[in-house]
């Protein structure tokens, strides 16, 4: 057991998989010799050499297209898109090519690849380098979508993603890179499609993802201490496949549900989950499901403004408290 940062967990995860399987290659912009703009891939170039760890030009379409071509012919590429906002310039691969090739070819083509990307706000980068775009990927049939919140999950879910036979979009949160967590020694492999109860509770279920998980946990601690409200916090971890069983099971116990979403309001992942709960667990509920999201606006750059719009522990505490006392 060792304490590791989320950033170093990314490096360890990729190294673990590259050591295991010589068909795993890794490329992206500034990822090899420079070690990544977020220093998430430092040392991989030195460890695995220039054939397996490569710097690309600033060509997001070429990066994702090449990953797909390599994947469909037998390699297991990990491709980095530096900021998830840049998905917009290579969205053809994410929306049209990776997820549809197997279906359109009636199962002839395969696409086992991982696209990893830095997602989310908190760095004061403004509206084009801070977005949470996991819902862009979630809406497309044929993709798998994960977003770890801890160093241990970074390694376990990355290993699961690399070993998965489908295209996986792997959202790292840039505001979590410096956070630390306990990580067991040896190989770590998780499974895609499993949520995790990170704090058991009986009065309400709080569903969170990535950076919103530590905020939800912080809020749950305060809700218990200050208001005697005992919240269960679930780290959703995987949007596709979605662990609806864990979510519905929790709602059946607590009878109240809150989502904490960093994405802008419309069509956020919580909307889909709330609709599933409404369809399948309506009579388990003692009150309306509540979504706590970033408002439907582009993100501002200024720290004081950005802090006002992302869901915070304060806002979660206040929303849960008010809803449960209504």
């Amino acid at each position: 057991m060792a304490e590791l940062t989320y950033r170093d967990a990314v490096t360890r995860a990729i190294a673990q998989e590259m050591s295991r399987d010589p068909d795993v290659i890794f490329f992206g912009e500034d990822v090899a010799k420079p070690g990544g703009v977020f220093k998430t891939t430092v040392g991989l170039y030195e460890q695995f050499g220039p054939r397996r760890v490569r710097d690309t030009p600033i060509s997001e379409q070429a990066i994702l297209g090449a990953a797909m071509g390599a994947a469909m012919t037998g390699l297991k590429p990990i491709a980095e898109i530096m900021f998830s906002d840049f998905f917009a310039v290579c969205f053809d691969y994410i929306a049209n090519e990776f997820p549809k090739s197997r279906y359109m070819s009636n199962g002839q083509l395969k696409c086992p690849l991982v696209v990893r990307t830095a997602n989310g706000a908190g760095s004061r980068f403004g509206a084009q380098h801070s977005q949470s775009v996991e819902n862009w990927a979630m809406m497309i049939p044929g993709l798998k979508v994960v977003a770890p919140s801890t160093p241990r999950d970074v390694i376990g879910l990355m290993a699961a993603a690399v070993r998965d036979p489908d295209p996986v979009i792997f959202f790292e949160h840039k505001s979590l890179y410096a956070t630390k967590g306990e990580v067991p020694d040896g190989e770590i492999v998780d499974t895609l499609g499993s949520a995790k109860i990170v704090r058991p509770g009986k009065d309400a279920t709080i569903l969170a993802l990535a950076l919103m998980v530590p905020r939800a946990l912080d809020a749950a601690t305060r809700l218990k201490r200050e208001h005697d409200i005992d919240c269960e916090v679930i780290d959703v971890r995987s949007l596709v496949p979605l662990d609806t069983r864990a979510i519905l099971g929790s709602v059946a116990r607590t009878h109240r549900v809150f989502t904490v979403e960093e994405n802008p309001r419309l069509c956020g992942w919580g909307a889909e989950i709330v609709s599933i709960i409404a369809d399948e667990a309506f009579y388990d509920l003692d009150g309306p499901p509540v979504r706590i999201t970033t408002p439907h606006i582009p993100l501002p750059a200024a720290d004081t403004l950005e802090d006002l719009v992302l869901p915070t522990p304060d806002r979660i505490v206040e929303t849960v408290r008010r809803s449960l006392s209504a």
Binding site: M68, G69, A71
Partner: peptide, 18 residues
């Protein structure tokens, strides 16, 4: 989708090279 397969062909060629 016009142009999509040029990078994909590059990836298949990258596998051959690798």
């Amino acid at each position: 989708i016009i142009g999509a397969h040029l990078p994909i062909a590059c990836g298949a060629a990258l596998r051959a090279q690798y």
